[in-house]
Design a protein around this nucleic acid. Sequence first.
DNA 1: GCTGAAAGCGGTCTTGT
DNA 2: ACAAGACCGCTTTCAGC
Lengths: 151, 151
Amino acid sequence: MTIDETDRKILLELQEDAGRSLDEIARAVGSSKTPVWNRIRKMREAGIIGPQVVIPDPEKLGFEACFFVLIRTSEHEADWQRKFLKALRERPEVMEAHRLAGEIDYILKVRVKNARAYDVFYQALISEVKVYNVTALLSMEEIKNTNALPL
Amino acid sequence: MTIDETDRKILLELQEDAGRSLDEIARAVGSSKTPVWNRIRKMREAGIIGPQVVIPDPEKLGFEACFFVLIRTSEHEADWQRKFLKALRERPEVMEAHRLAGEIDYILKVRVKNARAYDVFYQALISEVKVYNVTALLSMEEIKNTNALPL
DNA sequence: GCTGAAAGCGGTCTTGT
DNA sequence: ACAAGACCGCTTTCAGC
């Protein structure tokens, strides 16, 4: 499926604030309800538009520590990797995980209530799967955090 | 403001899928419409619940490159920092930016269409503000990416 | 703080152009 | 493919418990 200029505008609105009514979105993109609704439905079906969620405020809920974790490993067998990925997906503290190209093999973003909670997470992880080297970077300030793509 | 067990359950549902009707949420948390609605309103007012957004699929929209950028700087004056933060906030390719404690000063997550687009971004950034050292980590695979806090 | 019901807005679908 | 309109269901409010 391919996106045109109107679809692009709709997406820009929805990824900024999906809580408004169809009428408002339609006005914002210079169209009316029906076409906008049809386009949204199509993009949903195509999987271009994923889930609709609320973004909770981590600070206000007591999640005051955020770490980026750089992981090097010596093990590169398929079996080890399966176990490792499973562990990451199952741990709710892991907000984000990527497999990388180059020196460092994986990067994680981990949100926890405090430094002690991070240590608990860390100990649990390395006891589940063997990793060669782990570096944790502590965030002092979240400057920006968005899911909005630069359409 | 403090959150109780019912609020916690509601948040868990909303950060998973906010597209459902109040009835469905109420049933999922074992309550009924009105109390759930009142709790949601309160959490909105308190800022615990932030914006409601749709999550677009980056791959399907042609954003096939994702970099984590580690930045060291020699400049630590307030004025330099103000300019740097402003640049980050204004660049839409920057999905996430944190100021760090330790060796590395900043980490960015940058999404672009391809490696060439990353270079354009990189050149633009270093021409705007002076940085001492930049390392880019290329993501090969997004294993996990969520905003759902481990309540 | 919860339940139940009433009112009005908004999402959804149909028709017309 | 878009605009207008009707319908129905949901959000939102309010009274009573």
